[in-house]
Design a protein around this nucleic acid. Sequence first.
DNA 1: GTCTATATAATGATAGAC
DNA 2: GTCTATCATTATATAGAC
Lengths: 231, 231
Amino acid sequence: MRSAERAGRVLADVPAEDLTTRARIRDAAVLRFGREGFGAPVRAVAADAGVSAGLVIHHFGTKEGLRAACDAHVLEVVRRAKHEQLVTGGGGSFLQALATAERFAPVFAYVLRSLQHGGPLARDFVEHMVDDAVEYLADGVAAGTIRPSRDERARARFLVLGTLGAGLLSVTLDPPADPADLTGLMRRHFDAVALPALELYTEGMLTTRRMLDDYLAYVPDPPAAADEDAR
Amino acid sequence: MRSAERAGRVLADVPAEDLTTRARIRDAAVLRFGREGFGAPVRAVAADAGVSAGLVIHHFGTKEGLRAACDAHVLEVVRRAKHEQLVTGGGGSFLQALATAERFAPVFAYVLRSLQHGGPLARDFVEHMVDDAVEYLADGVAAGTIRPSRDERARARFLVLGTLGAGLLSVTLDPPADPADLTGLMRRHFDAVALPALELYTEGMLTTRRMLDDYLAYVPDPPAAADEDAR
DNA sequence: GTCTATATAATGATAGAC
DNA sequence: GTCTATCATTATATAGAC
């Protein structure tokens, strides 16, 4: 099964000469776009891949086509990484694992750029993370370690948007001089938020129930409505 | 005090013909950049302001100079708005007020773009918001409505980054077709997160103290160290 | 201060040889 | 499949007239 083996590989996990030129260009693009954003010129990608600019267009039609190919590839890598983590059953959140694993640094950087610029991949990625969070939280609720929520999906979305958004903002405000250091930067970010997050999640923050009760009295509707509007 | 009166004005709060050309160009740039990001061409700004592209450069030197002028102006407007809110003493968070007030929509959009792209204004803005949050939380702690934290500044930063990041991500993923509808979109976002936020802030989420206690046992250092690293 | 005209550079994409 | 050469567009910024 050489083709399956090849498709499963992660960026830079295999000598460049073993990849098709198309794949090499795509990988170079993921790296460039991850580092500099989608404003990076096609010529730069071509140079990184050691080919001409014309060839890039020949293979992907347009720059947008190249980005689409990158999106698809990144999504696939992430999907496999998730599955792998599920099988090996490593603890900790998926996001943290992704940020920590050096080998996923390019993919991770690319995802961050996608979230920064918006687009289909970003939506997909967030939506999947919300789905996962719903599952994890449900498991926790079933196990009794996590308190049930009045609107499980809204809570999951809140947590995902907050965590993801905070991380994104953190790197945007403090861009790493060395792009390779992105994982280290994210790790530092996680360290910085670990205490307040744990504290808040276990003890809460408000000493009275007044605000919550007021809200519940004011909005007696089925809470699912709020989630619908958020989409 | 005509000059002070003039300087205090907010965008679109005054007929265009009363402003200097320089100010008109700057306001047009804030609007354009807020709507389309900093990739928007100088020509577009010039057209919006009803002047030639050359004149824009004549006044601001370079496009970067134009952006710097926008940054300074937005920061000033925000500073005044904060002060105004402090004086009138309106309840609710400053961010929410800013997002809600229609008159600040252009400034708000510009701030979001800044956060998306990074840069000095974004850092400044976040840092000021953290400072404010520290103050508000301290007031709450003093009043007994808010639980004290093991690291007040880390908690404030966590809340600001999360709230701001979630809002930013929300609009990035779901860009408003009509740019004028940005405030409505943010309002919907706040509505969607209101319940989970209140729930989490009052009741927490974890049923056991294990994770927090484990963390505290594992990291016995003064918690301020984490904050230092986060910068 | 303001304009028109233009210099200069970079970009995405095409054409055609090999 | 791959290259070189080129086109067409768009961008910032300049020069000089008014």
